[in-house]
Design a protein around this nucleic acid. Sequence first.
DNA 1: GGAGAAATTATTCAAGCGTATAATAACGTT
DNA 2: AACGTTATTATACGCTTGAATAATTTCTCC
Lengths: 212, 212
Amino acid sequence: MTRRTFHRAPEAERRHDLIEATLDSIAEFGLRGATVRQIAIKAGVTAGLIRHYFASKDHIIQEAYRVLIGRLTEKARRVTGDPETRLHDFIVINLTEPVANGRSLALWAAFISQVNVDPALAAIHREGYLGFRDELEELLADFLAEKGQDASKDRCRALAIAINALLDGLWLEGCLAGELFEESELVSIAITSIEALMGVGLAAGRRKKAGR
Amino acid sequence: MTRRTFHRAPEAERRHDLIEATLDSIAEFGLRGATVRQIAIKAGVTAGLIRHYFASKDHIIQEAYRVLIGRLTEKARRVTGDPETRLHDFIVINLTEPVANGRSLALWAAFISQVNVDPALAAIHREGYLGFRDELEELLADFLAEKGQDASKDRCRALAIAINALLDGLWLEGCLAGELFEESELVSIAITSIEALMGVGLAAGRRKKAGR
DNA sequence: GGAGAAATTATTCAAGCGTATAATAACGTT
DNA sequence: AACGTTATTATACGCTTGAATAATTTCTCC
C-alpha cells in the first residue's frame, strides 16, 4: 500500500487553509461537527497535521474566531472620507455581503454560544467587539459635529447604543431571512431610521447608491 | 453493591426536568458539552432514562429549543391593555430579565448556530419566530391608529422592521454586556428611540416607570 | 544528486459518545 | 401484603473523538 502524495506548503498558507477549513466546517456542521478529522478533510490533509500547526483543537478554534471577527469588522474599520460618507459606508458595509449573510451569522452564533464556556474565546470576543461601538461612537461624534448638532458625551453615548443596536438587529434580520428583503431594503431602512434618530439628513442627494 | 434509590416521577414532571437540565447543560457547556450523560447528571438521573422519554438525543434538543422559544416570547405575547400600554410593556419585557440575560443569549446562539445543520431545528425556528415581527407589526398598527398617525401598510412594515431590529439589537447588547448599562438604561433608550422613529410620544407622563 | 531537516501521513490509544438491552426497584391496584 | 406494571438503574457495545507517536515523503541547500 502506497502513501498519498502531498506537497509541503509555506507555514502561513497552510495555517490559513486550516483556519478556513475550520470556519467552513463550523458553518456547515456546527461546532459539534467541526472535528479535527472533518477540518482535515476540508483542508485536504490528514488529521495529524492540524496538531503540527496548532497546539490543540481549542487553539485552532480560537484562531478561527479571531479571523472571523477581523473579517467582519475590517472593512467597516477602513471607511474613509468626510464624516457623512464614512457613516454612510459604515452602514452599507455592515448590512450587505459579505458581512451580512447566513454563513456569517451561523459562525458568529456558534462562537457567541461558546463565550461562556471557553474563557479564551471570551477574551477574543471582548477584544474584538469592544472597539466596534467605540468606533461607531467616534463616527457619530464627527458626524454630529460636522452637522453642527449637539455632540455632548451623553447624547453620543445614547445615540451610539441605539444606532449600534439598530444595525446589529438589521444585520441579524438580513442574515436570518435575507430572502424576505429586497435588495438594499435594509440599507434604506437603516438610513431612514438613523436620520430619524439623529434628527438630521444623511446621504440625501448622494451620488453613491444606498445599495452595494 | 446496591443500586441507587430513586422515585418514579409523573411523566410531565420528569420530561420538564429533563428539558430543564438540557437547557442548563447547553447554557453551561455549549451544545458540544450537552451530552446525554451530562444532562442526566443535571437532572439527577442516569443517562438511560433520557431515552425512555425521548426517542433520541436530537429529539430532546429539539424539544428544549421549542421550550426556550416559548419562554422567550410568551410574556411578550400576553401584553394587554390599550395599544400604548401594550407597546410599552412589550418593550420592557423584551429588554429586562428574564428575557434579557447572558444565559438566554447563550442558549439562543447555540440553537441559531445549528439551524443550518438540523432541518428539524430550522422548522421549529421558523414556526416560533415568524410570528414575532408580525405581532410587533400589529402592535404598531394599533398604536399608530390610536395616535391618529399614518398607518399604511408600507409604513408599518418599514417601522416594524426597524423597531424589531432596534429591540433585537438592544436585547443583544443587554445580554452580551448587561453590566455596562445602568438599570433600565436600555429601556429608556428603546423608548426614546422608538418615539423618534415613529415621530410620536410613547409612555410620556405614564404612571408606570420605564424600568421593570 | 545526495544529505539533512521537517512537513506530512499513517497508526495507535484511551476516553467519551449515543444507543441498546437486561436487571431491578418503586408504586398503584387489589 | 403479594402482584404486576413500568420507570429507572446498570451494564455493555460499537463508533467517534482529540491526542500522541512512529514512519515516510518532500524539499532545500550544498
